[in-house]
Design a protein around this nucleic acid. Structure first.
Lengths: 199, 199
DNA sequence: GGTTTATCTGAACATCCGTTCAGATCAAGG
DNA sequence: CCTTGATCTGAACGGATGTTCAGATAAACC
């Protein structure tokens, strides 16, 4: 018995990635076996190799896709350059919180499993991460140039900003006391003060 | 042939914990075998069981010790309550950065390996973490009561503060461009603005 | 210096791991 | 309706896993 009824590459492929992402986030890459992923999909372990050359590449593709989605989504959401830096920073703040809380598993995996990437794959993901940090840094530098932000160390402030915002993922739950919009506002209030010229 | 020359519980015990912490931080709990820890210590895998009942307890003890050290160190470093909230927040900021950058491995493990703890152990570590968050929250509430801080959501702000400060660990390297003291000052500058009354 | 005892070795246990592959199965195309 | 080819099964591979334990060793004590 092989090839169950209604089996298709279009269906199984995404399901493999979804199951892998969920299980990697829950238990960690090293703790999740190919057999467990296969069981989640409802398939034998061997079948996974129609969709990934190996386990490492499966992890890498999940992380690369997440980072590329993040960068593309910000490019699409970023206000026009002629808009002020303050508006850009507010947009970045709200975008980051909204995007990341909606993909908690991918965010978690992309940060936690860096050490399980082979060096070549690690460098790719690190490069994408640096691109995102640089986007945040550019906003801060623009604000300084406009005379609206007081930021002594823009690169450090950019990383501090991203750490601050990503922290939302550790506690935020839908149906909690605060809506996502309210959380965004609370954080934007903190971010605004953090970089403001008149302290 | 057993019991190598000069072997002692006082020596091997700490070395087991050091090796485990280092390797867990580097590769992750699930990816590090008891044999690898033993090899790092220069001993056979069986000998580790003189120092821990099992691998899970070894991880748990490392995390519990770290969290207890953190809480005890802050209790010792915290300024007297009659000191103002601003001074307490500066002390907290500098303390957190200094303490955590000096124990990067333990910080990393205590955050990354939460999901590899059995439920009972997880609850213990979570409780300790909450205690620390509550200490930060108390400072913010005091500042609000004193009329010096403007913080709409003290619990959220406390977690945001900790996420912001812990982020230093992802990029800080000794012998980098900035000394630890300079980094503390950069962050304290951001924290001060973040909670300041006049934004 | 002989005895005790903490400490460690080396082998064994059942179980799981990632990956491969021949062969079975079934949806689609002619 | 028959053929083709994509998809999946089930078994197998060598090797690694956490843990146990009888026996060997050497430091500490009398």
């Amino acid at each position: 018995m092989a090839r169950t009824q209604g089996s298709h590459s279009d269906i199984t492929g995404p399901r493999v990635r979804e199951a892998a992402l969920r299980l990697f986030a829950l238990h960690g890459y090293a703790a999740v076996s190919m057999r467990k992923i296969a069981a989640e999909v409802g398939v034998q372990a061997g079948a996974l190799y129609n969709y990934t050359p190996d386990k490492q590449t499966l992890l890498f593709d999940l992380m690369r896709t997440h980072m590329e989605d993040l960068l593309a989504a910000w490019e699409a959401a970023a206000p026009a350059p002629e808009t002020g830096a303050a508006a850009a920073l507010e947009a970045f703040t709200r975008f980051h919180i909204r995007f990341n809380t909606r993909r908690a598993d991918a965010v978690f995996v992309s940060y936690m499993e860096l050490r399980n990437l082979e060096p070549e794959n690690f460098n790719v993901i690190e490069g994408l991460r640096r691109d995102y940090e640089t986007a945040a840094e550019a906003i801060l530098r623009r604000g300084v140039a406009e005379g609206r932000f007081a930021v002594a160390e823009p690169r450090i402030a950019a990383m501090a900003l991203i750490a601050l915002l990503t922290g939302v993922n550790t506690w935020f739950r839908e149906r909690g006391r605060l809506s996502l919009g309210e959380v965004e506002t609370v954080y934007w209030d903190m971010v605004r003060r953090m970089v403001a010229n008149q302290g």
